[in-house]
Write a protein that binds this DNA or RNA. Sequence first.
DNA 1: CACTCATTCACCCCAATGGTTGACTGACCA
DNA 2: TGGTCAGTCAACCATTGGGGTGAATGAGTG
Lengths: 118, 118
Amino acid sequence: MLFIHMVERNDTDHLSTVLKATSDPKRRSILTLLAQEGPLRITDIAARFDISLNAVSKHIKVLEAAGLVTRRTEWREHLIEVQMGPLSLVDQWFNELRSIWALRLDALEAALKEDDND
Amino acid sequence: MLFIHMVERNDTDHLSTVLKATSDPKRRSILTLLAQEGPLRITDIAARFDISLNAVSKHIKVLEAAGLVTRRTEWREHLIEVQMGPLSLVDQWFNELRSIWALRLDALEAALKEDDND
DNA sequence: CACTCATTCACCCCAATGGTTGACTGACCA
DNA sequence: TGGTCAGTCAACCATTGGGGTGAATGAGTG
């Protein structure tokens, strides 16, 4: 089983991890870079940003834990690839929140209409 | 001008703030509560969760800074109301990332087809 | 003016985060 | 086997973050 480190206790935790991972501008830049250039090595990523190799390595680990990135160790290099999957977890939660909110407004509106009839 | 504290230096910062604000499970719970029950006082919110009034006050400030919540000081109470607006900022960024990614895949596919013709 | 209630402020605590440097592992090359 | 390159580990530092307590503010109410 690959991606063991990506498994989370529950969805709430995973959602938190994804949101936190994307909340850092540098990590978002990394994701964008990977999206446009395809799989890259840690070293390549470090070269683009004014950041130490070590710092990039840590960022990648955070993204990896969120499942936003996977690692393909090929040859002696680690190829890092972006993954869009986890984003839908966020979409899902947002839409849930929005629908809960809309539901309440609908009920409120209905109640007001009811009031009109009195 | 209302919502001065909500104004951010730039969109990137605002996006980070929104993502960070939503990355905390307790804050997400607060947002959900507000979505289903409508505007509530800080005290009301604190009563639902096993958390001090002070902690809630801090969370609200974080959500407020992200624009995910607004405060209507009515009477002697602060009514906190959820705002869906900032969520679309995240949607937007996600969709941008996805389209950058898709674009690269399309180009790759085209290149492969080109290769077939040789 | 005194009292109460809602919220914030000022600190303190501790855990986590982003960053650094320097040493280490592991794979390939000569 | 010695060298070089990719990446991680370990230790450290400064900052932030979530939480708590107790005092202060500020707007009603009596």
